[in-house]
Write a protein that binds this DNA or RNA. Structure first.
Lengths: 356, 356
DNA sequence: CTGTTAGCGCTTTCAA
DNA sequence: TTGAAAGCGCTAACAG
């Protein structure tokens, strides 16, 4: 491994000068000094020098790394690839690493089972990705260790970053209204996979967004909510019953993937999508049924990642300041193709900006 | 931050003794020494001591961290949540961190744009997750920096870990045969989204596995391959044409999600699934159509992660040894429910074992 | 079994 | 504008 010392020897200067030059802390103006700096940089490049981050961390006391904490069990912690990439890119852009960590519920009670990020001093801050069912012990544990933390995808009074589900839902409903629909139903159908899981905040927010838009337009609210189905298959049956009625809705906004079940139901009844029934749903990626895309409000994980990165860094810098909750706007229009970012979602711009 | 030194003072011993006790390097047998060790542990616990990994790394020269390198652009690098978790857990089990890294193609040509894991000395080894289209520069770059590396999801002569697609496909075909099917078609339909992407090895291997099983059973091979469709929707049309014929197949094995398109086609023709047409496909998670699950060969990312973790650690320990390519067995039976690990896939056992 | 000594590669601080 | 010295928290090696 090449060290600062070796470069210093070749260049005939001190380790210190090399360090300053390579870190950009070198405030030299004299031409001779500038030349020397250039020479040092060249030697470093030729030798293939790479600073030892561990040594930097020991000396400076900063790890320049953030741990992303996820639960064991996918019901309580989802991590779409786009969110992970968004986080990782946003942090890398600020010269910080993203470290993966997992925390099982039993680890909370068993001292010896604690994950590395709690057992060791290895990162500057945490991003907690518990969607719901945050185990009691976690907050205490984090408070106790005094690790600066930001919560993802959770709505609380402070220190959290989550998508603006209300606005997104309201906008999607507006979109359907603007296309001439009048009978628009909101569907939220789900299996009860777990015991009595408390609802995620988005359950209420998306419903509220739909209601707001309908009321603003003077249209009747019609909802179909069942969050305790026995099996996923029942979705199709329920929706089919609704669609069979004479005054069936001409459009449906689903909490999640209800639109694909609705598509199936429509097919069974001989209805055409989107002519007879227009569908919109929320998802990380465009909802697709055997290759047929359904308009989707994408949960713009990149934006979320970007905002979360900024927030956790701010928290690391000022651990005692309570950061206001941050609702990240989503892609306003439903989309049917992947990777077509709308202008509003300028990711690069988001990276450049430095939100407090 | 609590240091070894502080604990040592409280306990009335040297830093070194504390270090040994806390690291398990303490080979004491005398009761008095054992008592003292217990006391040291207690003090450490009371003070909330957490070892500084950066200091450990500087002193020992080992980072105890592995970087997972993914490409920019989802077509060349996919990272299912289960693989990420599998990797992270398997590494954590060996007291190593998983660090996320991304490498854009342009970074390869632009020296200043290199990602942190290449610009800095910060991890012991790399896991490269380029599914296909590995840019030319990467191998050279990694060779140049001499970073111990394992390739994921790629089939090459050495230093790689990938699922055993051939066996999985053969087994799935056997499964269909054992259920009495005789006319089984293999379908591989895909959009040509990119220019001229070379095929992933699994394209050939899954086909070969199907063929092997059919030939072993003395059954006729029937394939439907089109990897240059204009739109995903065409899948349904193609399959419908096939299913409309008199001697239509009674079962279909799809390369990926073809089964969901086949389900749509069957519905349009009034065929019942699985009575008239039995479907199987490959995917990370169970394929589902509006809540209706389709038997799926799951790409057991946990096993892959576990194997990859073991491989990269072996590579770090012996950087100059070429590790033989490792084909990881998949869940042998198609499944229709999530999170029901088959006995053969005992993840914990896999973690305990220490494959060379 | 335990302590002493000498670093690891880097940054921080202060002096020149 | 540069250097010297000290030290970050820990481990390795050897001595006793």
């Amino acid at each position: 491994m090449i060290t600062l010392h070796e470069i210093a020897e070749k260049a005939g200067v001190t380790q210190m000068t090399v360090s300053r030059v390579l870190n950009g802390t070198y405030a030299a103006k004299r031409p001779s000094a500038l030349n020397r700096a250039e020479r040092i940089r060249r030697i470093a490049r030729e030798l293939g020098y790479r600073p030892n981050t561990a040594a930097q961390a020991t000396a400076s006391g900063k790890f320049n790394s953030i741990a992303l904490v996820c639960a064991h069990g996918r019901t309580t912690s989802t991590l779409p690839q786009s969110l992970l990439y968004g986080l990782s890119d946003a942090l890398a852009h600020r010269k910080k690493q993203l470290v993966m960590s997992r925390l099982s519920d039993q680890a909370l009670t068993d001292d010896q089972q604690l994950p590395l990020f709690l057992r060791q001093h290895a990162c500057d801050g945490l991003l907690l990705n518990y969607t719901h069912c945050i185990p009691d012990g976690i907050r205490e544990l984090i408070d106790q260790y005094r690790i600066p933390s930001i919560w993802l995808n959770v709505k609380q009074s402070h220190d959290c970053v989550h998508p603006d589900d209300f606005s997104a839902s309201r906008h999607a409903t507006h979109w359907l209204i603007s296309k001439g629909h009048r009978r628009i139903v909101y569907a939220d159908l789900k299996c009860q996979t777990q015991g009595a899981l408390p609802d995620h905040y988005s359950v209420a927010d998306r419903l509220a967004g739909y209601k707001a838009a309908m009321q603003e337009a003077g249209l009747p609210v019609q909802t179909m909510q069942q969050r305790d189905l026995k099996r996923d298959q029942e979705q199709v049956i329920r929706i089919r019953t609704l669609l069979a009625s004479a005054d069936r809705p001409t459009a449906m906004l689903g909490y999640g993937m209800e639109s694909s079940a609705a598509y199936m139901a429509a097919m069974q009844l001989g209805l055409q999508v989107p002519n007879d029934l227009e569908l919109v749903g929320f998802a990380n990626n465009v909802i697709s049924l055997g290759g047929i895309p359904i308009p989707t409000i994408r949960l713009s994980a990149k934006m979320l990642g970007c905002a979360a990165a900024a927030a956790v860094i701010a928290k690391v810098d000022q651990p005692d300041r309570k950061l206001p909750a941050l609702a990240v706007p989503l892609d306003p229009e439903p989309v049917t193709e992947e990777d077509v970012p709308s202008p509003a979602m300028d990711y690069e711009k988001c990276l450049e900006a430095d939100p407090g």
